[in-house]
């Protein structure tokens, strides 16, 4: 799994992701205008002073797109990291402890998963105050159920292998079993899963923002920008399509890398079986 063996599609994906990250990090340097400055007329067309035109309030769309990468990436990535930490911790605990702990955690997970993610988010966000950290935690908790399910399956696969049994019989402790025996053998498949969850988080966040429940104005984020400009569509104003395309671009890039990750890890596994 080296850069050298990366196919073209995955390289494009990686380059795209790096580009978005660069935009997010260097936004104040790159962006021609300020994030919330009203600099022109409403919905000015593309070209001239405004490369991508202006939005519904007359703010520069390109600048908002660049700044929007910050909020979108920050929230989606934080939610994914937290969701992964929760899901992995609980699933590994369930597998290594077994018995009642496993039953309890797994049934609770089934329950949370029996309500669709978006619906659960809508219900919860309806009562909670609007705040970026609450948003992140809600997204993370809902998504951690999916991580739990995958993490448990993967860890269970490894935990029944003879080398784990051998480690128990040698007299190793629980921590050694988790961190030295099970975890290293689950990293490859879980890396692919992390990418999938990240892609899902970007889409989920954008959807929530689009519905007005995600990141709140005046902070720019791509889903919210689509919502702000959606009334323009009927007049042929493309201001709502540009941020939508940005979301699509980022998710396609992530998926390209994920596809490669999943392919390499599955073929690695195959090589091991044949050896």
């Amino acid at each position: 799994m080296t850069l050298r063996s990366m196919p073209m599609s995955a390289r494009i994906g990686l380059a795209g992701i790096l580009l978005v990250f660069a935009c997010a990090i260097f936004a104040p340097v790159i962006a021609p205008y300020d994030e919330s400055a009203i600099v022109g007329e409403v919905w000015a067309p593309m070209g001239g002073d405004f490369l991508l035109g202006t939005d519904n309030l007359g703010r520069d769309l390109l600048s908002r797109l660049i700044y929007g990468a910050r909020a979108t990436l920050f929230v989606a990535l934080s939610a994914t990291v937290i969701s992964f930490s929760i899901g992995m911790f609980l699933s590994f605990t369930a597998v290594v402890s077994g018995g009642v702990v496993d039953q309890l955690l797994s049934r609770l997970n089934d329950l949370l998963m029996s309500v669709p993610a978006l619906i659960l988010a809508l219900v919860v966000l309806a009562v909670l105050p609007q705040n970026i950290w609450i948003l992140i935690v809600v997204m993370a908790v809902i998504d951690s159920t999916r991580v739990y399910r995958v993490g448990r399956a993967v860890a269970l696969d490894v935990s029944v292998m003879d080398f784990v049994e051998a480690a128990w019989l040698r007299g190793e402790g629980k921590l050694w079993i988790i961190f030295r025996e099970i975890l290293p053998n689950t990293l490859a498949p879980l890396l692919g899963e992390f990418g999938l969850r990240f892609a899902f988080s970007i889409l989920f966040l954008s959807t929530l923002s689009f519905l007005g429940l995600g990141i709140q104005p005046p902070i720019a984020d791509w889903g919210g920008m689509v919502k702000d400009n959606k009334d323009g569509i009927i007049f042929g104003v493309s201001a709502s399509l540009t941020p939508g395309a940005a979301i699509a671009f980022l998710v396609v890039c992530v998926n390209l890398v994920v596809d490669w990750l999943i392919n390499t890890t599955s073929s690695l596994k195959g090589a091991r079986d044949n050896a």
């Binding site: 954008s206 399509l241 939508g244 998710v251 396609v252 992530v254 998926n255 390209l256």
Partner: peptide, 22 residues
């Protein structure tokens, strides 16, 4: 299909509106 699963639903909707309606 990889492209289609990467597009947010609302983006697909607006693309269709842009094309078929506008």
């Amino acid at each position: 299909s990889l492209a289609a699963i990467s597009l947010p639903e609302f983006f697909i909707g607006y693309l269709l509106i842009q094309f078929f309606t506008v």
